[in-house]
């Protein structure tokens, strides 16, 4: 066991559950049914080798896809240790299911979905996902329904004035301030680019609930970015 890292058995995969919402008790099974239809034919030899149990193929899978999976897991859980554990959970889960993977989606898409599930399970175990209040970051209105204060226009920001890295830092700093339930949704939808349906399936929630939470997360993030982006503030 190199470096004292815990080596899990495949049994651990069966412990990966959907989190949040009514489907929280359902067992997660990496589905062979794709969430999207993007298929990469160049992956077929690797998939075949995996099905045949080729050790080198398994190592290639880990080395090729692991870094991206770790980045995805880090965006969901904030601890490096938990992110690495989530990646390990995800690979174990994927290994179990590779025999039933139909190749109807890209491996990266399939692994992405499994990783988000594994990371969400880690969050659930930590008890950090809950509907904390976000009200103080939402726009406020008078009794007549009109905005209490006028928003300031934002400067260019995403191009000439801020580098991509500066923009990323600003956005991530803001997202990190959101309550977990909102942070997870905005990460899945707006950073990772999942559809509302995909996010709802992963979270075991309805599309409507995901849309509402996403909208509120965006409103809150807008409020957090405003002091940095409003014209004349910097």
């Amino acid at each position: 066991m190199p470096g004292g890292r815990v080596v899990k058995g495949l049994c651990a995969a069966s412990a990966i559950l959907f989190v949040m919402g009514d489907a929280a008790k359902a067992e997660f099974v990496p589905s062979s049914k794709p969430l999207s239809v993007d298929v990469d034919a160049s992956e077929q030899p690797l998939i075949e080798a995996l099905r045949l149990g080729d050790n080198r193929a398994y190592e290639k899978l880990i080395r090729d896809f692991g870094p991206r999976m770790l980045a995805v897991a880090r965006r969901v859980v904030r601890s490096e240790t938990e992110a690495e554990e989530a990646v390990q959970d995800a690979f174990i889960s994927a290994f179990r299911a590779i025999g039933t993977f139909e190749g109807g989606a890209k491996l990266s898409t399939w692994l992405h979905r499994i990783t988000v599930n594994a990371a969400l399970m880690r969050l659930r175990k930590s008890g950090r996902i809950r509907e904390a209040s976000i009200e103080s970051l939402l726009p406020s209105f008078g009794e007549d329904g009109h905005a209490k204060r006028s928003p300031s226009p934002w400067r260019g920001g995403n191009g000439a004035e801020l580098s991509a890295e500066e923009t990323r830092s600003l956005v991530m700093e803001g997202i990190d301030k959101l309550p977990e339930a909102y942070r997870v949704v905005i990460m899945m939808r707006d950073v990772d680019g999942l559809s509302t349906l995909q996010a709802a399936q992963l979270l075991g929630d309805t599309e409507t609930a995901v849309k509402v939470r996403l909208h509120r997360a965006r409103l809150a993030l807008r409020e957090l970015l405003d002091p940095h982006m409003a014209e004349g503030r910097l």
């Binding site: 066991m1 190199p2 890292r5 815990v6 080596v7 899990k8 058995g9 495949l10 651990a12 050790n55 398994y58 190592e59 880990i62 080395r63 692991g66 690495e84 990646v87 390990q88 690979f91 174990i92």
Partner: peptide, 8 residues
């Protein structure tokens, strides 16, 4: 981590 996953 790679070794741990392969060992698992």
């Amino acid at each position: 981590l790679i070794r741990a996953i392969l060992s698992a």
